[in-house]
Structures are given as C-alpha cells and as structure tokens.
Design a protein around this nucleic acid. Sequence first.
DNA 1: ACAATATCGTTGAAAGTTCAAGTATTCCGG
DNA 2: CCGGAATACTTGAACTTTCAACGATATTGT
Lengths: 150, 150
Amino acid sequence: MSLNRSELRSWLMLMTGVQSLLDALDRQLRDDAGISHDDYRILGSLYRSPNRVKRMRDLAREMSYSPSRLTHAATRLESHGWVSRSKSNSDGRGVEVHLTDLGVAKAREASEGHLELVRQLVFDTQDPDQLDAAVVALARIGEAAETSRA
Amino acid sequence: MSLNRSELRSWLMLMTGVQSLLDALDRQLRDDAGISHDDYRILGSLYRSPNRVKRMRDLAREMSYSPSRLTHAATRLESHGWVSRSKSNSDGRGVEVHLTDLGVAKAREASEGHLELVRQLVFDTQDPDQLDAAVVALARIGEAAETSRA
DNA sequence: ACAATATCGTTGAAAGTTCAAGTATTCCGG
DNA sequence: CCGGAATACTTGAACTTTCAACGATATTGT
C-alpha cells in the first residue's frame, strides 16, 4: 500500500469534497439553465476566447476531450444554435467552432446562477489566504497530472 | 457578475486543476486495471465497509448516484463477479450489495497503481501543511455543497 | 516531387448515464 | 387495521460518452 492511514484519510476527504462540489455545480446548471456543467464549460471557454472562436483541436485539448467527444458535443450545441462550425482556412484539416450570439446570451444567462453558487460555496466559506493556498495546491496537482500523461 | 476578476481567475485555476486530476486518475485506472474511476470508487466504498456490504440506498447516497444509475452499475459489476446482490431481511424493499472475494482481489489489484499515482500527484507535490490546508478548504466547500441541496 | 507518416476531424456502434414509469414493501394518519 | 403516501429498487428508452475505423489534408524524409 502506497499511502499511510492519515494520508489515505486526507485523500478521501479531498475527493469527497471535490465530488460534492462538482455534483452541486452540475445540478444547479441543469435545474436552472437546462445545461450540463460540461457543456457550460465549452461555452465558457469560447466566450473567453479572442473572437469567440477556437479550433476543435485546441478546444478538445483544453477540455481533455477526445476528438470524437468534442464532435458529438459540438453537434449537440450546434443543434441548439449556440455554436457554429466552419472549415479553417489556414489548415484544410481544421475546423473552427464559433460561439453564436445566441450562445453568448446563453452563456451569460447560465453564468448568473452559476457564479452565484460558486461564490456561496467557494468564496463565502474561505478566507482569501486559505483559498489561495488551496488554489495553489490544486494548480500544482493539476500540473503534475498533465505532466504524468506525457 | 458575481465574481471579480481575481476571484474568477482563482476559480478557473481551481477547476482546471480538479479536472486534470480526475482525468489522470480515470485514465490510469482504465489503462492499468480496466476499470473506471467511478466503478473503482464503488468497490472501494464496499471494501471499507464493515462486512463489505452496503444497502443500495446508502451506497447511492454516498456516491451521489441516482437509484437507477446504481442499479445499472451494480448489474455491470455483478456481471464481472465483483459484487453480488441479495434482498435485505430487515427491510423487504431493500437490497444489499456485497463485495465478493473476486471483488476484493480486484479492488486490491487496482489500488496499487492508483495509490501510486495519488502519491505522485498529491503527496509528492505538496508540503504536508499546504496539503492539509487544501484538504480543509475542500472539505468546507464540499460541506457547503451538500448543504446547498437540502 | 513522392511516398510514408502523422494530424484533424467525423462516423456509427457499443457502453454508460439519465429520465420517466412501474412494482413491491413499509410507514403513517385516522 | 385500512388506505394513502412515501420509500426502495428495477426497467427500458433516450441521450451521452467511448471506442475503433475511416476520409481528408498536412508534414517529413529521401
């Protein structure tokens, strides 16, 4: 066994908290905006992107999605009219996903309740210092995770 | 907008780290043990339970699963021989899930590489103090998340 | 310039999750 | 103790994700 008793306990606590957080976020978005947290993250990523466009490849990497998964997701979002796809002209293989005006509106609408909950769960429960510590810790862990798959 | 610039940045960093972590854990378990992180967590929960039994209801709550999802999951795990189900005798409606010997073996086998990775990603990247801080923070967030759905 | 190889994205089928409906048992008010 | 409401679980259909295979364009090495 690779972890001792106390490490195991810390690890379980960490994962339990993470799970509860993700569940709460997903539930809120589904209930209030009718969109999954994953789809919301796609809209959010495009929203923050210059010109609200991104190549499928880049978006897939950012989301840790398989190409296939992103294609299906894009098809779904496209059917709602929230994104549109077009061939990249710099790379004939590439496809660009564009956030439509409707998509912008949807992202904004969904973000209201979402950010409200984030404030409530994350920022209202922590001192700024504590939160910073947690953010730094998670960033380090995430970085190690990315590295580990190289 | 409910969060200011710097809060938003912290929040994004946090979520990115969490995502990367979960992805890495899932990938390792699939690649090395042929089991999803979610199924692994079910085995783990039963493994830690007195007698290695739990009622469907309790397991579902603990995992934040819908009853339906747990039934499907139990069917799948049962088909591998890792779990068996039987009627509860204290409550005629209830069903108990039991971790079989094969399930115990599977859980142990899978845990080796898994815990190895956890050590590498979580414990090797943090001072104990920093980690404790993160654990406490996440625990508070998780608790708030549980409360929020009452 | 050409062939081999790698990258980008899509497709359809298999596997997993969610959702709405259904069966069986227990709980509770009167 | 009876009937209605609640709880526990299952089922099958709809939807989402994964997986393996494929067509198309770009890159690399010779």
